[in-house]
């Protein structure tokens, strides 16, 4: 929800980044205030996931220019695990499998690490079990997933649900959901979206990376951005997603040329 008096949670200015010497982000600007929901859309390969991973501190990407302030802190001063503890959460587009590590152990360790960081109480395995089962109900997840290895053999949709389960557990300040809707069936989409909606409040913010309007029917964004070739080329309200769905991305370029030339192509 937009509130002009809200505090700025994330401010990205002129962000350039490259991987293996190839420049992928070419000057990203974005401001996210507490309480807001932002959607980022854009063609495949435009740099959305790269941007998300850079926010989380992925070591493969090299930031070559620009600044990111998160919660009044220089984000580049923080290691990836410190960013997580400070409240940056990334739901991965492709959650990785970790064979041999039980999901419940992993979840509890993550939870306790963040709890202790916040000066809150850690939970022993039994307490945690009760706690996590409640959270799983919210996402209508089968508790059997607790005993399996992290993401191993999970279906695409199950992996995405497991990501949101972690979001529910860690209660981040800034949640970046990278195509969480891809791979979810219609029921799962509704369940996951409801889960996310229950987690958003006036003190946190969410960035949704998506290709489809149907997610935004459930989680209504305050802003929709379009990324192209490593830049945010257009920002507007929620109606932008609908227009994109009807007209496609070419329409933006067409619209831009229209603005320049005054002639609609």
């Amino acid at each position: 929800m937009i509130n002009q008096n809200s505090k700025i949670l994330l401010e990205v200015r002129g962000l350039h980044a490259s991987v293996n010497g190839i420049e992928i982000l070419k000057g990203v600007d974005l401001t996210v205030k507490c309480g807001e929901i932002h959607a980022i859309m854009g063609l495949n390969g435009s740099g959305k996931s790269t941007f998300a991973k850079i926010l989380a501190g992925h070591p493969a990407y090299e930031v070559t220019a620009g600044a990111i302030i998160f919660n009044e802190q220089n984000l580049f001063d923080l290691e990836p695990e410190e960013r997580a503890r400070a409240g940056v959460f990334l739901a991965f587009q492709y959650p990785i499998e970790i064979p041999g590590v039980a999901n419940n152990q992993f979840l509890r360790l993550a939870y306790n690490t963040i709890q202790s960081q916040r000066g809150k109480e850690e939970l022993d395995p039994l307490e945690f079990d009760d706690f996590i089962r409640d959270k799983m109900k919210l996402l209508e997840m089968n508790p059997d997933f607790l005993d399996r290895s992290v993401n191993e053999g999970f279906s695409g949709g199950e992996k995405k649900r497991n990501e949101i389960l972690q979001m529910a557990l860690l209660e981040p300040k800034l949640a970046i959901l990278d195509e969480t809707d891809s791979g979810l069936d219609i029921d799962a989409l509704r369940i996951v979206a409801n889960g996310v909606n229950q987690l958003t409040n006036k003190d946190n913010a969410t960035i949704l990376v998506t290709h489809y309007q149907r997610l935004l029917d459930y989680i209504v964004p305050d802003y929709v951005h379009v990324m192209e070739a490593g830049r945010i080329i257009k920002t507007s309200g929620k109606e932008l997603a609908k227009e994109l769905e009807t007209h496609g991305y070419d329409w933006i370029n067409a619209e831009k040329s229209f603005n320049k030339t005054g002639v609609r192509l």
Partner: peptide, 13 residues
């Protein structure tokens, strides 16, 4: 690297 990053992203050293 990606496995490790997954842990780090959840706050685990």
């Amino acid at each position: 690297e990606d496995q490790l990053f997954y842990f780090l992203q959840r706050g685990i050293g």
